[in-house]
Design a protein around this nucleic acid. Sequence first.
RNA 1: GGCCUCGUCGUCUAGUGGUUAGGACAAGGGGCUUUCAAUCCCUAAACACGGGUUCGAUUCCCGUCGAGGCCA
Length: 540
Amino acid sequence: MENQNFKFIKPGEIRTRIAPSPTGFFHIGVSRTALFNYLFAKKHQGVFILRIEDTDVERCKPEYEKDIMENLKWLGIEWDEGPDIGGQYGPYRQSQREEIYQRYLEKLLNTEKAYYCFCSEEELEAQKQYLMSIGEPPRYSGKCAQLSKKEIKKYLAEGKKSVIRFRVPAKKVEFDDLIREKIEFDANLIGDIVIARDLSIPLYNFACVVDDFEMRVSHVIRGEEHISNTPKQILIQEALNLPRPKYAHLPLILGPDRSKLSKRHGAVSMNQYRKTGYLPETLINLMAFLGWNPGGEREIYSLASLVREFSIERCQKGGAVFNIKRLDFLNGFYIRQKSIDKLTELCLPYLITSGLIEAKSNPEILKLPLEEKAQFKIRESGEEISLETLKKIVSIYQERLKKLSEISQLTDFFFKEKLEYDKDLLRWREITDKEIKHSLDKLRKVLSKIRADEFNKENLEKILLPEAEKLAKEMKKPIGPPAARLPARQGEAGDRGYLLWPLRVALTGKQASAGPFEIAEILGKEKVLKRIKKAKELIK
RNA sequence: GGCCUCGUCGUCUAGUGGUUAGGACAAGGGGCUUUCAAUCCCUAAACACGGGUUCGAUUCCCGUCGAGGCCA
């Protein structure tokens, strides 16, 4: 029985598909299914198909279809056949396949494996309520199953509202799931299902069977929520005499409350993650490990290495919670792997959209890859800023970045004229205002002696570090009451914070930042002195 | 309600008829350090429960419980 399934496919040819409905933005669930289908196909040199299930004209929108394709591409999940690629088994939009469905529908109708049903919704609803009240599964009574040809013809001619029902045979259905092994259903409990609203509007289970066959899909890999659709589809296949593809039902992706991940859990659309500044390699790596793992202890995998390692046997059965913390960790990791050039390219759009900088000449600058001659200016001051400088800024924040969007709030002080911060932020430990001023004065004195063209990290370090040590020693012999301050820290180095903390705050206005020396270098002598002066003014 | 699926640290998971039940994220502590990161070290943390089978079950079988999905 198994062998016959593959008659219609070239020996060994693996063909998988995803079949999203463009009724909303591309989300995590579909993309994980897409990923697994892609991995499985590519692993076996097979074909991955993108089919668009857009029969619901009310809810489907072209923009959503575009969104699906854009995000798949962004993730690097390229399809071999799909909406507009490779017409051999197409068209690949269900809305364009009406005739095909009609052909199969007529076949079922003619062989009496399907029939017209004229029951009204109220009738059906009442019946269902009754069945449920007596503890029976709510299935169709079969009232219209026995209608004579004459009656049917008459009703149709009258234009009586109807649907097409599939005559579900009373039998046990059994199939082998690649992940779950044998699964069994009793079709007796299903009742005759509606497979089409009319000859031109097929419903999901029917269309799916027809398409999967017509498109020569060898493996149906989909979410666990489809397990209960499978027996229905198998029965329809059998009625149509179609071969059975292999099935694999992936565990669900869950929200923190362990129910199926959905909008109410917050961010689910791929766009949102993309906009926040998660990298495609992050999403791929995380999604791959939701319900699958290669067995070893390695956890970092690129799409290419996943293709190499993937195996459907190693898929998990239980649902997996989508863990944002882990996503952040992985994203930080992949950000750290980026070259500065690349990372700068990725960060620039965020700096621009948050209004910190703007492209000087070419507003198309957001288009990557970035040209070296690209020019930028600081929005607020209109001052030019070189790509070189922007790269430096990005580079000192590379290891602090978890999401690309964070770049703006982390580095905004580079682009602002006036920093807003509380004067108490300048205070290191318990030092007095007078002592802060002392530190700032010292900084100003020392820094103004450095030549502007030697105002770089190395020199600053060479000069300021000894000064910081010196000050630390002074502070150990407190002028004020001893109880007023914390004990100096142990260790060889003195507490450099007395000098360096006020410097950091004066330059950044923040309590967390990259090192003050590298920041000072980027800001340049003039701005550094100006900011120190401003800090001093805050004190009194 | 019916049917189906699932059940190892908080989370993702490895694993086996005999293991100190392993890793990663998160958490806590510590080192480095002017801060935040990065990085390094350490700690805590799990086999849902009850019966079998067995010399021995986390592992095999049955049941219970729990969670989820689908149907409408």
